[in-house]
Design a protein around this nucleic acid. Sequence first.
DNA 1: CTGTTAATGAAACTGTGTTGCAACAGGATA
DNA 2: TATCCTGTTGCAACACAGTTTCATTAACAG
Lengths: 152, 152
Amino acid sequence: MPLPATEAPGRLQAALASRGLRLTRQRRTILGVVENAKQHLDASQILRHAKKLDPEIDRVTVYRTLKLLKRHGLVDELDLMHMQGEKHFYERRPQRDHIHMACLRCGKIMEFESDLFDRLKGQIQRDCRFHIVVSRLEVGGYCADCRTNPSE
Amino acid sequence: MPLPATEAPGRLQAALASRGLRLTRQRRTILGVVENAKQHLDASQILRHAKKLDPEIDRVTVYRTLKLLKRHGLVDELDLMHMQGEKHFYERRPQRDHIHMACLRCGKIMEFESDLFDRLKGQIQRDCRFHIVVSRLEVGGYCADCRTNPSE
DNA sequence: CTGTTAATGAAACTGTGTTGCAACAGGATA
DNA sequence: TATCCTGTTGCAACACAGTTTCATTAACAG
């Protein structure tokens, strides 16, 4: 469940256009799907949603568009600890990075922002003289519900 | 490049045995390969190394053994930011978690331990009442060498 | 409107990882 | 050391995410 979108819709479209990339019908559709998603979607889910809006869209176009968005830093790719096979999930890159927590029992995905995380990234950049472009912190474990109701 | 192993060799074998799992010839071979690896290896590299020691070994056995080690928390699975396709890399689980930094230009993988990382995980466990079983922090960006010698 | 050029769709292909099953071997027991 | 039970192996076939090739189509600049 991505954190609530606090920015105007169409931000991805605007970002692509400002980089001189062609805004095709298919790209608009896929961008809309990613932008308005209520959960993290994988490529095949994105294709399924996009096909409802435009039945002609092909899965290759979905893969190519996701690759493009990733390369431009407009979406982040997640593994969510590979709980459901090897697929990848996508979300619009947020203003502030967050951590993904995956419950190994109920499969729920939670997000968490933390100053410590921001400070840790600052430390990496300083101490290792490493310029961070993308970061991903995922943890697997057991959520509060599954710890208190292990019988359910 | 995994941090230097500070423990006696054969730790993985001992750990498997203590859990009552069968120590077959093939498992000994694969455990040895993982334990003595100088870099992070993926499944096909582990198979190649294992085949040199035991040409009869099958790739399916490698996959099954890695799955077993992962399930028992004896090895960690890494993605290393998917810089070389979708394969996974493996390393013996260290006493203390570390961060993996992948240079997007030269492909080098660096490791880094940090108190802030330990504190961040503590915060997650407390604030989210989430019991962490496995964690993975990977960052992609540009290393010191590639920042100072962008022309090479 | 037109031309250039990038994007698309369709099919075939890669490569990683999995499954079903008959044959085999670890290791506990006597 | 021989025997048995049961987990493990090897093989072949499979599943599936993601990529490549290339002919066709459509953005959008002029």
